[in-house]
Design a protein around this nucleic acid. Structure first.
Lengths: 202, 202
DNA sequence: CGTGGGTTTGACCAGTTGGTCAAATTGATC
DNA sequence: GATCAATTTGACCAACTGGTCAAACCCACG
């Protein structure tokens, strides 16, 4: 496709188009539920053309997952040891909540992968996710030792934030049904702000 | 298969065996990711034999989902307006958490269905789930009005409990990776008890 | 023990799916 | 505008999938 030179303008455009379509379809139907034909239709390209840019359906899925975990963890990386503890933790929660609103398809893609046992990103969970969380937990424990925030199990605190934000993205249909059509995320920010403020106030 | 008489002993046994196998496979791979052959292998029966007891793959899935929502909501139904508010709400949370431990496959089956947009149980969410939640929310609001528990958004309080318990069941792989192999549910009960006690104490 | 319904299965089928390939078309560069 | 690589596609294939069916098998009951 490209001899020894870098990527073409066309390549760049088509790769992006394909990944956008693949995200849409994988998020809606899961890996096995998605078909290359569906992705091709969503991308407005022919099936053989997709397989000219990505060697397989697997490759498209892998390309999406590759960047995802990184993006997903960016808010946690931003947790600053030198900031105000309550502000930092609430800020982290709010950023994650914004991602639930802005990237629901990415959230579902991730959820699908974890639900199947994380076969394709288990190593990344151990190699990248765990060290990062361990690092941030140490910061949080420092804040607790200093009496800046109340003492709670720091790992479960993070799980709790993940649980909430993932739930509002992935289970939106259910929450919306219960609320009679109202957008669940409308009240979520205020509720969660209150929950964690109350939990962490010393 | 059975003329006019009731179900045979063999039927009862095989139906149960098949549903058990189907739950295992559907929970692990989702509806489209599961194959009838896989279920047959897991059940130790031949594929045509499965289709003798269930008219289609869809029918097996439907049979599983049918009872699931009911089972899933049993703990919420048990929420007693006449009980002690804090005890009732903490008890509900703990019962849900026990279900995460005891029925992780059912939890994943449910999660898969919701993730795909709840195509097969959306009507049940509106017809059964919503009225039940509405009813219990009224009870909770009564407790808040009476000053027995702190005032929080009651719907989001329920979402919060769902989010936590669903997370510990469906994202177990991730949480376990972060904890370095330790069972996430070990510390969950104590953490959540603390969270909701602190949140709801007036 | 035979008989009739309940049960099981090997062989089979049509539709779908991921992927291939040679040929055609397009685009950039001189 | 000639040339060659990059791009696109129609036709095709092998494997898989859900489902069918006639024939075989088993089991209770007389």
């Amino acid at each position: 496709m490209t001899g020894t030179r870098g990527t073409t303008r066309i390549q760049k455009r088509n790769r992006a188009t394909i990944l956008e379509a693949a995200l849409e379809v994988f998020a809606a139907h899961g890996f096995r539920g998605a078909t290359v034909d569906q992705i091709a239709a969503a991308a407005g390209l022919s099936k053989p053309n997709l397989l000219y840019y990505f060697t397989s359906k697997e490759a498209m899925h892998a390309a999406l997952l590759e960047g995802l975990l990184d993006t997903w963890l960016d808010p946690l990386r931003a947790l600053d040891a030198d900031g105000d503890p309550m502000q930092e933790l609430l800020g982290y929660m709010h950023r994650k909540l914004e991602m639930s609103r802005d990237f629901p398809r990415e959230s579902r893609l991730f959820a699908n992968e974890i639900l199947q046992g994380a076969p394709r990103i288990l190593s990344a969970l151990n190699d990248d996710l765990k060290p990062l969380v361990d690092d941030k937990v140490r910061i949080i424990e420092g804040w607790m030792d200093a009496g800046k925030i109340a003492r709670v199990h720091p790992y479960h605190l993070i799980f709790s934030i993940w649980a909430h934000t993932q739930h509002y993205a992935d289970f939106e249909v259910q929450a919306r049904a219960v609320l009679g059509g109202e957008d669940p995320l409308d009240g979520a920010a205020q509720f969660l702000d209150h929950v964690y403020r109350r939990l962490l106030t010393p």
